[in-house]
Design a protein around this nucleic acid. Structure first.
Lengths: 152, 152
DNA sequence: CCTGAAAAATTATTCGC
DNA sequence: GCGAATAATTTTTCAGG
């Protein structure tokens, strides 16, 4: 079940507006409602469309402070990695976390109200993660691109 | 117009499901439809709710390769920064971009099909950005947390 | 500022082609 | 995949507390 041009066109539309009606979506992609509804349902079922979400404004919520953290672990055995992964997923302020090939082990994106708040998160939560050897923090001064759509 | 507990509750619901009806949303937050609809509209207007988006699965789309890039500029005059910002926003594969305080100037998150594809993006697009002095790349081996909701 | 119900509009579904 | 008819929901409106 490869995606054709119309599927990609549907994905672009729902990425821009998740609340679009099937009627309007059909009009935009140039097909009638029946097949468009079927295509959307198929992509929901297959998981290509993972969710529909409201995107909130960090700035309006007073959560515009972003810090990236490099986190190195004491050891990188499978068990240690799994323990860290499970624990970091519990921290609400960690917006993204990737295991990195190279000098450090993990890269975390932390969202906070301000740098004082970040300090608390770092001290109370990140440093308390299992197996952390050391961390380095990089403060963002400006969000140039925040959460772009996936290009399909 | 500060947000009260019910507003935050609404935000949590719509972050989880953007396609929820006002009827169902009202039931969940324990209020009738009228005020819930008004609150949602107010938060859309004020920009707290910035958009409604379908979240696609990078893996299902064959776009699971993530690379972080540190980019240093030749000079950091206001004009140079603005030129870089404007140009980087044109690159579809750059999912996030923050200006960083510290050793390097920018941190970019680049999404690609695979490392070969990344190499093309780096060579053709990132290196061609105005004023780039040097770059360092960090390949993600595993996505531990990808696009978490904002905690409200 | 909220409730609840009636009315109006829109949307999704079904089905023959 | 189309298009019309049907059925179901949803949004809107409004009187009242």
């Amino acid at each position: 079940m490869p995606l054709d041009k119309i599927d990609l066109s549907i994905l672009r539309e729902v990425q821009q507006n998740a609340r679009i009606s099937m009627t309007e979506l059909a009009r935009r992609v140039g097909l009638s409602k029946t097949p468009v509804t079927q295509r959307v349902q198929a992509m929901e079922k297959s998981g290509v469309i993972a969710a529909y979400r409201a995107v909130l404004s960090p700035r309006k919520l007073g959560l515009s402070h972003v810090t990236y953290m490099e986190v190195r672990l004491l050891d990188t055995t499978e068990a240690a990695l799994r323990r860290f992964n499970d624990a970091v997923r519990q921290i609400a302020e960690v917006e993204e976390c990737y295991m990195i090939a190279g000098n450090f082990d993990y890269l975390l994106k932390v969202r906070s109200r301000d740098i004082t708040h970040f300090r608390t998160i770092m001290g109370d939560q990140i440093s308390a993660l299992p197996g952390v050897a050391s961390t380095s923090s990089f403060v963002a001064m400006e969000a140039v691109i925040e959460n772009a759509e996936i290009e399909v």
